[in-house]
């Protein structure tokens, strides 16, 4: 691998631009999608089809008063939004967008990504705790219990993928699935009959991990004002939102690489980065679609879903996969 200093720097700039554009324009997509689902048009007047809307929102948020209320923990209050953003940005360093488009090929990149995802949860906890607001603290506690509950089935499901591909390197996992959709892990029925179920469990968990509706218990507006970001105005709030959208993108990238063949074309033609982008945007659209279609669940139903359904299913799934690999 090329070890010159320019490669990481170029990738840093590229991924920063990619991440920034995604964080800004997914907000636009979400508002347009919400509009279309509710038979509205969404933003129309600010630029063509409202395309300048993220720019206006961003500049407005940056120029808004930076308010640190009395009674908050000053340092943690300022650190939390930054901490929400950094893990999501760092994750892009190990994600392979195509065969050679990857900043660093790390041997245990799957593990690294999940470790970073847990730090994003810490940001919510810190933000809620440092605010000194009762709603924010409730939201932080909810968020931690939710993330802990959903990390278990997610990781157990990932073990099945790691077992059938025999590697924890995202690059190797994606290369393993090249050559048409029948090689993809979601359809790899000859390796384990339950792979589609793995995919469904993983996708549900990734929605819950990124705190998206119907699992957005951390910012349930009807109960908790604005959840952990109640006390954040201006860009602190902006960074939390950008972090959420970036986590969505990272989640979609993970689902694509682990189950949908990464940059592979469904029919083995012209594999490349465009297939990867197409797949992650289809997944992101699904996430937005789910958010504006289903109502929010309750916190105990959410935890029941994880502890009583997803965890047993994922454990059985793991055992069946192990048995399949042993027998065939």
């Amino acid at each position: 691998m090329d070890t010159s200093i320019w490669r990481p720097i170029l990738y840093l700039i590229g991924f920063m631009a990619f991440a920034g554009l995604n964080a800004a324009y997914l907000g636009w997509c979400e508002r347009k999608g919400a509009g279309r689902i509710q038979r509205r048009t969404g933003p129309m007047e600010v630029g063509f089809q409202g395309l300048l809307q993220p720019l206006a929102d961003g500049l407005k948020l940056m120029s808004k008063q930076l308010l640190v209320p009395t009674g908050v923990d000053g340092i943690l209050f300022r650190v939390a939004p930054i901490l929400a953003m950094i893990p999501a940005l760092t994750s892009f360093a190990v994600i392979p967008f195509a065969g050679n488009i990857q900043a660093r090929s790390v041997e245990l990149s799957v593990l690294l990504l999940f470790a970073l995802a847990s730090i994003a949860m810490m940001a919510i906890l810190l933000g809620g705790w440092a605010s000194g607001n009762k709603y924010a603290v409730i939201s932080a506690a909810r968020s931690v219990s939710q993330n802990l509950a959903y990390e278990i089935p997610m990781l157990v499901t990932v073990i099945t993928v790691v077992m059938i591909t025999g590697s924890m390197n995202l690059q190797d996992i994606a290369v393993h699935q090249q050559g048409g959709f029948w090689h993809w892990n979601i359809f790899a029925l000859n390796k384990s009959i339950l792979m589609p179920i793995s995919f469904i469990i993983f996708f549900i968990c990734s929605i819950a991990e990124t705190n998206r509706a119907p699992f957005d218990m951390a910012e349930a507006e009807s109960e908790l004002v604005a959840g952990f970001m109640t006390e954040y105005g201006s860009m602190g709030f902006g960074l939390f939102m950008m972090g959420e959208y970036l986590n969505m993108v990272v989640g979609a990238c993970l689902v694509t690489i682990l189950f949908l063949g990464g940059w592979d074309c469904p029919f083995g033609l012209f594999p490349g980065v465009w297939w990867f982008l197409l797949k992650i945007y289809i997944l992101l659209f699904t996430v937005i679609w789910v958010r504006w279609t289903f109502p929010r669940t309750q916190i105990y139903k959410l935890l029941n879903l994880s502890w009583k359904i997803l965890i047993p299913f994922s454990l059985v799934n793991l055992l069946v996969t192990a048995a399949f690999i042993k027998i065939f």
Binding site: Q38, R40, E45
Partner: peptide, 23 residues
């Protein structure tokens, strides 16, 4: 805010629950 009049055309549909984020 609903579909007939649609305040979101002007980018003003983001009803923020927290006063810190509202304009």
């Amino acid at each position: 805010g609903g579909s007939r009049f649609d305040i979101s055309r002007f980018g003003a549909e983001v009803f923020r629950p927290s006063p810190r984020q509202a304009d």
